[in-house]
């Protein structure tokens, strides 16, 4: 009912200007300017407490910015909250998994809530994509944290998001799972989807990134194409900007 026609295709995935967020006098984000093209993957690095989660939550409309402007896929962050929710997928710290429901029931719930088709066929397809089909009828309580992550990702893949916001997506995934996640993300990118991948470790995520940004003390202190940086230089710059390296 509040679903609107899709925005013009040439809209940038993300465009923010002077985005600020303060909890009381404690400024978590100070003037963040960030832009992201469709089909682009941005690796957002930064130490714990740098404001990565806050930034992602603002872009996903979970939090309201204290000041500044921003557009997500052409929609205004302050005014067009509902349309943004229909085109953005957020993989947050919490998996949004109900422990007493099965994997398939979890997906059915979230699909119906989002107004998406929730027939068994569609759900099985997504479960297959995240390699959870064999345990589709088992309760989430029995799942490992990695499996819950996959289930959370399945929830995002249910719809047709234009932008995925991933907060420490590798946490809880084993080596195979990490590799698998990157394949999923590359496929998403191939279809023109944009990704912001926030992480505090260098281990993963850089491989598929087109751009690397460092968030420190609530500001973007570095934003460069991935190709222009080798890993050593990145380490040096990261240590420089965050004082206490990764």
């Amino acid at each position: 009912m509040t679903r609107q026609s899709s925005p013009p295709a040439n809209q940038r995935a993300v465009e923010t200007e002077g985005l600020r967020k303060a909890f009381g006098t404690n400024a978590v984000l100070g003037r963040v300017d960030l832009s992201l093209e469709n089909g682009e993957v941005l690796a957002l690095l930064g130490p714990n407490g740098a404001g990565k989660t806050t930034l992602l939550k603002i872009l996903a409309t979970l939090l309201r910015p204290s000041a500044g402007r921003g557009r997500v896929v052409g929609f205004d962050l302050m005014r067009d909250v509902e349309p943004i929710r229909a085109v953005v997928g957020l993989l947050a710290h919490g998996s949004y998994v109900y422990e007493d429901l099965t994997a398939e029931e979890n997906l059915r719930f979230w699909a119906t809530m989002a107004g998406l088709p929730a027939d068994a066929g569609a759900l099985r397809k997504v479960l297959a994509a995240v390699e959870l089909e064999p345990v589709a009828a088992e309760r989430a309580r029995t799942f490992s944290s990695g499996m819950k992550r996959r289930l959370a990702l399945a929830r995002i893949l249910l719809g047709a998001p234009r932008l995925q916001l991933l907060d420490e997506p590798y946490a809880g995934l084993d080596q195979q799972g990490k590799k698998w996640l990157e394949e999923v993300l590359l496929a998403f990118k191939g279809k023109g989807g944009a990704v912001i991948l926030a992480t505090h470790s260098f281990g993963r995520g850089l491989g598929i990134a087109d751009r690397v940004a460092i968030l420190a003390g609530g500001r973007i202190v570095l934003d460069r194409p991935r190709a222009s940086l080798d890993l050593e230089e990145l380490h040096r710059l990261y240590a420089l900007h965050t004082e206490n390296g990764p």
């Binding site: 009912m1 349309p83 949004y96 109900y98 422990e99």
Partner: peptide, 18 residues
């Protein structure tokens, strides 16, 4: 309370619509 487990509450907030 069941919505607090695994932050499901956030998921409900992010559901588009009324």
């Amino acid at each position: 309370l069941v919505e607090r487990e695994n932050d499901c509450w956030e998921g409900l907030v992010l559901t588009p619509g009324d």
